[in-house]
Structure formats: C-alpha cells, structure tokens
Design a protein around this nucleic acid. Structure first.
Lengths: 147, 147
DNA sequence: GGATATAGTTCACGCCGCTTAACTAATTAA
DNA sequence: TTAATTAGTTAAGCGGCGTGAACTATATCC
C-alpha cells in the first residue's frame, strides 16, 4: 500500500501538512497568550530541560544574554517563570516554570495532540493501532537523536 | 507493544518531541533567512494556497491589511514573492511566490523531512514500512480535516 | 452618473525584541 | 589579595511589525 510511494515523498508530504497545521496553531497560541515566538521557546526549553540559567537560554535561542535577560524578565512579570538565585553560585540565576507557566505550555502541547487525535478518530481501530505503534517508534527513535 | 499505553499519551509524547524539534528548526530557519515568523507564514500560505490578495493574507495572520501590505512589501523587495495586478479586478493584487521564494520554502520543509528520515534510518525495514503506512494514513486523514 | 463599497498603500506612532556597551556582583586564578 | 573571568542586569538606540487614519483607485449599486 505504501511501498509504491517513495519514502522521502511520504515523509515530505506529512511534514508539510503537519507544519502547516502547527503554524496555524502556534499563531493562535501566540494571539491567545500574547507571547512572542521567543518567549514561547523559552517556556518550552524550561518545560523540557528543567532549570537553567539566563545565558543558556540565550545560547539556545541564538540571542545575546542581554536580550535573554529582558525576555525572561517579561515572563517573570507575567508570573510564568520564576527566577531564583542559584545557591551553588550566587552570580547565577535558576529559571523554572511556575505552575501557571507549566499549565500554559501543556495547553499548547495539548492543542496539537487533540488535532492528531481528531485526525485518527475516523480511522479503523487497526489503523489506529498501527499509527500508535508507528508514533511510539518515531518518538523513541527521535529521543535518541536529541542532544 | 503499543496497546499497553494510552492512545492519548502516545500522541502527546510524540507531539512534544516533534514540536521541540520543529521549534529548533524553525528558529534556525528564521536566523538563516532573516525572515520573521509572520513572513514565513505568508510564504507558507502562498506555497500551499496559491495566488491570493493582500487582505486574505492579513485575515489569515490575524493582522490588519495595512500590516499585511507592509510585510508583503518587504518580501517583494527581497524577491521572494511577486505582486501583480489582478486582471479581473484592477483594485486587487495577486500575490505569488517567485522561484526564489518557492525554493526557500521547500528548503524549510526539506529540513524537517530530513530529520524524520534520519530518525527512521536506524529502524528495520519492516518498521520503516509501518511508519510509511501510518504517515500516509495520517496525511490523507489530516488533509480531509483541512479548510 | 453619482454615491457607496472594496482593495491596497502610505503615514505617524508605539511596542517589542534585538544589539552593544557599561555596569554590578560573585567566583576563580595568579 | 589582587586581577581576571563569569553571570546577569541595565541603558540607549535601532528596526520590525503592529495599529488607526487618511488617501488613491477601481468596482458596484441605485
């Protein structure tokens, strides 16, 4: 069924559909929350990677730590992240999501999940099973290739 | 293998991995090209939806047509899109990607595709086959739910 | 033909996010 | 203990991107 189509082509088409949808969701999320692309990225970094300092955030986003410091400050003011002194090194700050921030990020991820769930709803249960297996494999394999 | 884990959970985890990766790629793409989030969205819209006018772009992005007009103008200056008069209605403009713009968008999509291809490379051929089938199903089903 | 509506552009203005540079404070090295 | 390094903040300034308002040009409606 799938072997007639080139692997790369299938993946390319899926990526395109997914990206288009992601873009729309992301735009909606930015509007709802009033957060910028960078700010959402900072929240995502903290959600996945746990506590870290200001400079690391800047490096991850490819901006100076001055810019990072300012963006972070806006997020702190909004109560989405907390900035505490690192007890091991009092020059450094430890950044972490507040409960409010964590809830927000999880909502953002949830929107995308709901979409895929909706997409799979109209399929047969064996098709759904196959998709579950495939996504599980992809997730595991993708995690191995992460930094 | 997958039935032990809740469907929703599998999808959620995969969304998270994919989104994290997408965010990183997208940021890289913005840096490389010097384009903003909005500008890339405009290019994506034109890539997928074909020719359209300024106001429609604005509506899609949730901004005024004044803002859309300005963003579009920057893209025209950069040679990524062309803005011609609509022969049917001379008030309106027809926006379309130039070859340069099309190439750029396809590069952006390509980056993500390469990543998934890389992720699937370490799998067995039967696993790859399953993923191809699953993604084909997802793509077809997702397209049906699009506007 | 004249009033009204529609498609885009331009202008003045403000906010946000970025940069560089100068700064404070804490740590590490000599 | 002094000097150099490192983490972060602050300030001034710039450009992008957004807004509303005023404008031009075309199309449509009576």
């Amino acid at each position: 069924m799938s072997s007639t189509k080139a692997v790369a082509e299938v993946i390319r088409e899926w990526s395109e559909v997914f990206m288009r949808r992601s873009g729309r969701d992301f735009r909606g999320f930015m509007e709802e929350t009033g957060l910028s692309f960078s700010q959402i990225n900072i929240l995502m970094r903290l959600h996945h990677g746990g506590k870290c300092g200001v400079t690391e955030i800047g490096e991850r986003l490819g901006i100076t730590n001055a810019a990072a410091s300012q963006s972070i400050d806006r997020l702190v003011v909004q109560g989405l992240i907390e900035r505490t002194e690192d007890p091991e090194d009092r020059r450094a700050k430890q950044l972490a999501l507040t409960q409010k921030g964590r809830t927000l990020v999880e909502q953002g991820i949830g929107v995308r999940s709901e979409w895929i769930e909706g997409v799979t709803e109209s399929l047969t249960s064996s098709q759904r099973e196959m998709i579950i297996s495939a996504l599980t494999l992809l997730t595991e394999s993708a995690r191995k290739t992460e930094d």
